[in-house]
Amino acid sequence: MMGSQPERFKSKFRGILDIPREERFVSGHRLCAGCPVGTVMRMLTKVAGKDSIIVNGTGCLEVSSTPYPYTSWMNPWIHVAFENTGAVASGVEAALKVLKAKGVLGKDVKVVAVAGDGGTFDIGLQSLSGMLERGHKVMYVLYDNEAYMNTGIQRSGATPWGAWTTTTPVGKKWKGEWRWKKDIMGIVLAHRVPYAATASPSHPMDMIRKFEKALYYTREGPTFVHVLIPCTTGWRFDPALSIKVARLAVETGIWVLYEVEKGKFRVTHKVRKRKPVREYLKLQGRFRHLTDDDIEYIQKIVDEEVDRINKMAGEEVIGPVEA
């Protein structure tokens, strides 16, 4: 399935039971009930293991997980600011590299950067680009809840068309966000990174293997995992439904699970028959104001995107919408 890689990456994680029991992102944090980013960090740190330094940009995750004098992080963890996650990760990596070369540090330590969509698509794009371009051996995890959630649901470059946010409100003239989500994966891939992937908490094994693979490929350079994080508060849905919303994003083809490994594109989770986007949209208050025409418009754009994906894959990996 993975094509013919010369030195093939082999996953340690065949099933749920292979995930380490040891907790490295622990309870007691202040994330909203139902926020999947805690779950994702739990999995990420289990995969990364003890010998990893976490760099976290400002945002919900950072403030919720480190209310002094408490912390949820069992790994060494640093937060500096909002727009510099890439630069901070670069500095950590460069220090590890030189300290190892000079014999001060005796072992391999990995660097994992974590930042939100605002901190990645927008204000942190420059520092991310610098980190990618210079080839620092860092795995960068983008947790994308599609708005500036920490400051109260303002739109970001990741906010999808039609979404209500506090800075794209629904009124007489405005009907929510009117621009499409920025193609951050395209931007990252333009830096020719050895590995980049999309993931969703609804498909944990797929996500875990991508974290593992992304860490593996840091031996060659920077890697990137873009994780969709449905936000119960900002997207306006019942906190019990986060994983369901994430799954619907995949099942409707709005969120395609893929990876680009050494330039080779592969959809990691095929969807034989797609659900209509309406099923995803209707669960979320941020899309409540959309008319049938609006929903049809979104469906059309998603259909086109699915076409593009299928062309790239060279086969129908995402099927048609179920009637």
Partner: peptide
């Protein structure tokens, strides 16, 4: 290690991070 950063904001951020890592 010389980090050819893309701005001074990143220059200081990376230097901070390197010192925080023990360099």
């Amino acid at each position: 290690e010389m980090i050819h950063v893309e701005s001074e904001h990143s220059a200081l951020s990376a230097a901070l991070a390197a010192a925080a890592t023990g360099a």
